[in-house]
Computed example of a mutant assay.
Amino acid sequence: MNAATTPGRFISLEGGEGAGKSTQVARLAELLAARGIHALVTREPGGTEGAEAIRTLLMQGGVNRWSAHSEALLFAAARADHVEKLIRPAIGAGQWVICDRFIDSSRAYQGVAGGIDDAAVMALHGFGSRGMLPDRTLILEVSIEEGRARAARRDGAAADRFAARGNDFHADVAAAFRRFAAQEPDRCRLVDASASADIVAAAIHAQLADLLP
């Protein structure tokens, strides 16, 4: 199967720190490849030269380096470049795109946890990325304690500005993702990420069954 016979799809994976998004992005790409679909794997912030430069600004430095409003603007700028230069062209060419985080992370981290109204976050998204949304968003859920333990094993002492924040912040992020899933059940699907990588991958596969050729 090739791009000429496969409609382009946009899939995002979301969740808190240590939920296993990067692992499952790779597993999903393998699943699609086995079905003859070569997926473009990307991440946010990042994915293009300009967005990766903004990623460095956002992820490094002290927790209070940027306010939530400044972060929202920087994420929106990075996403606008990402969407314009990579995501839209790929989907337009019939390709599948799998993204490690997208707009729902901004809604959760800068919006709910950062105290910015969701409408303001989405207005930035509407202007910068013309309101683009994934066809399906898989929200990986794991307890804050387990997620932080996984992130610590992964990052050691090199935790980024977001992973380093307190439990109250991460509890707000988790609650926000659950709210999005309740509000948009056709697009957003919750996946229990506390199980083994194989079991989580199978659950993700099941949540994408209606989109798979």
Rank of each mutant, 00 (worst) to 15 (best):
M1L: 02
M1E: 13
N2E: 15
A3W: 08
A3M: 06
A4W: 12
T5I: 11
T6I: 05
P7H: 13
F10S: 04
F10W: 01
G16T: 03
E17A: 03
G18N: 03
G18I: 10
K21M: 00
S22M: 04
T23G: 07
A26F: 08
A26C: 04
R27W: 04
L28I: 05
A29H: 09
A34S: 13
R35Y: 09
I37T: 15
I37L: 02
H38T: 15
H38G: 08
T42Q: 11
R43G: 07
P45G: 06
G47A: 01
E49N: 14
E49C: 01
R55G: 05
R55D: 03
R55K: 08
T56D: 05
L57F: 01
L58S: 07
Q60W: 07
G62S: 13
G62C: 03
G62T: 15
G62V: 14
G62L: 08
R65Y: 01
R65G: 02
H69E: 15
S70K: 00
E71G: 03
A76F: 07
A77H: 06
A78Q: 09
D81V: 13
H82C: 05
V83S: 11
E84C: 01
L86P: 00
L86I: 09
P89Y: 10
I91Y: 02
I91E: 09
G92F: 03
W96I: 10
W96Q: 06
C99K: 07
C99G: 05
D100T: 13
D100M: 07
R101Q: 10
D104F: 06
S105Q: 11
S105A: 15
R107M: 09
A108N: 13
Y109A: 03
Y109M: 07
G111V: 11
A113V: 01
G114F: 00
A119T: 14
A119F: 05
M122A: 09
M122T: 15
A123C: 08
L124Q: 12
L124H: 05
H125F: 05
G126Y: 10
G126P: 11
G128F: 07
S129C: 13
R130I: 06
R130A: 14
R130W: 04
M132I: 11
M132L: 14
L133Y: 02
P134F: 05
D135W: 02
R136I: 13
R136W: 09
L138G: 06
E141S: 10
S143H: 03
E145W: 00
E146K: 10
E146N: 14
R148N: 13
R148A: 03
G156F: 06
A157Q: 15
A157P: 10
A158I: 01
A158M: 09
A158W: 00
A158F: 01
A159P: 06
A159E: 12
D160M: 08
F162H: 12
R165I: 01
G166R: 00
G166I: 09
F169Q: 03
H170P: 06
H170F: 04
A171Q: 15
A175S: 11
R179Y: 01
A181T: 02
Q183C: 03
D186G: 11
D186I: 14
R187Q: 06
C188R: 04
R189K: 15
R189D: 04
V191I: 15
A193V: 10
S194I: 09
A195G: 12
A197I: 01
D198Y: 07
L211M: 08
L212G: 03
L212I: 14
L212Y: 08
